[in-house]
Design a protein around this nucleic acid. Structure first.
Lengths: 225, 225
DNA sequence: AGTAAAATATGATATATATCATATAAATGA
DNA sequence: TCATTTATATGATATATATCATATTTTACT
């Protein structure tokens, strides 16, 4: 069982507030796991009773809409934590988590984390700030969904994907989403998403290499988002 | 200066975790204020440096969308707190707050609240849970905006308004929103909102008494939301 | 490798919603 | 109280987007 001290999650998440002693306790109670692309980590409505540390890989957090379509609420990547809201609210998770790539994750049971809340104020504040950041982002996304056109949302999302996950040597977006997933991030029909990608391609905003995407005209994409 | 001990906000918000001593300190540092309908409490981008307790009345939290329209993200009513996210993140507020009715509010400076965070764990947990609730709600609203039709959102919002704010003796919704405000809650054009209200009226789902609204067929409204 | 299944693509069409225009009603202010 | 502004209402039209259909390409599987 590896130590938590050098872990990337510790470096980038609320866990950075933990001291050596706490990290040792963490290492003792955590369980590590490999998750294959497409595998479900948890499902909306489940009781998770702890949090996950994402050591490597990316997953999508989705919510089933009343009409039966999945909507991608957020992408979570290495260094981040998963399931904090549900643990604090002491409720089932309101979102499902599905791996977009092979992942390495650790599970830490709720009891352990709750102990940190009691004894380590900095940790509490870090978690609170993370969730506040999520809330701000969610408010902003809500307004985007309500007020922006699909075209604007697509442009914005493409920029976000490149900013957050970067690009390969051939300039294609590093993160690999299907058209269907991209559509369910921007909140539109798959066909509409594909159609708009074609259009963006035709007018030189992006280039399509098979199912891979290259952003060609970032200023214009920015202007139209 | 009135005491905080009996205050409705204390009863219903995170402040219920405060002990007598803390409540005395709160009462000493707070400033009370009357806010007239339509008045701005704070505006997106401002530094607020504290939180507001809503003793009476209701306000809307709005966010300016990139296309220049205001979107109502949330309604906040008596007993609730305002500005927690911004205080914790130590950032300008991301939403504007505008009174929908005459209000009574108190302002508590940040320094005081941060002291409670340090010393009162239950208070911290309460705040955290509140924000987690807001986040869950925001995620759900995001999906609604992305996936539901305007008609569905209108039905849902009408039900929410009656559930949350109740109705008058003549069965009209207690909370008084303009058509414009209702439209900016459900994320549509004012005319579309008015048109759908007319349609709901014609098919007996609701009744329009001037600008007041009566919900007539709640089961059907539920089914279509 | 070869076949079935899934993902991508594009056309045709329907539909929801926005926009523009104008009328009427209600609220506000001198 | 009257005049001016603002809110509500409804029609006509344009437009974005969803839906249905089908073709092609890619992926997965035995």
């Amino acid at each position: 069982m590896s130590k938590c001290e050098q872990c990337i999650v510790r470096e980038f998440s609320s866990l950075k507030a933990l001291n050596k002693e706490e990290l040792v306790k963490l290492a003792e109670c955590k369980t590590s796991r490999l998750v294959k692309k497409g595998e479900v980590i948890f499902e909306e409505g489940e009781n998770v009773n702890g949090i996950f540390c994402v050591k490597d890989g990316v997953c999508k957090l989705t919510k089933l809409s009343p009409n039966g379509k999945d909507h991608i609420v957020k992408l979570v990547t290495k260094g981040e934590l998963l399931g904090q809201r549900s643990m604090i609210s002491d409720e089932p998770v309101n979102l499902s988590a599905v791996a977009l790539e092979d992942m390495q994750i650790c599970f830490v049971p709720k009891s352990e984390i709750m102990g940190f809340f009691d004894k380590n104020n900095q940790f509490s504040m870090n978690v609170m700030r993370t969730i506040c950041g999520d809330l701000k982002e969610a408010d902003s996304q809500m307004v985007n969904m309500a007020q922006k056109t699909v075209k604007e949302r697509l442009a914005e999302t493409l920029l976000y994907l490149q900013d957050t996950f970067g690009k390969n040597e051939d300039n294609t977006l590093k993160i690999q989403l299907t058209r269907d997933e991209l559509a369910s991030m921007i909140g539109t029909a798959t066909e509409s998403c594909i159609r708009l990608l074609s259009e963006f391609n035709k007018i030189g905003l992006i280039e399509l290499k098979g199912k891979k995407i290259i952003l060609k005209d970032i200023p214009k994409l920015k202007k139209m988002s």
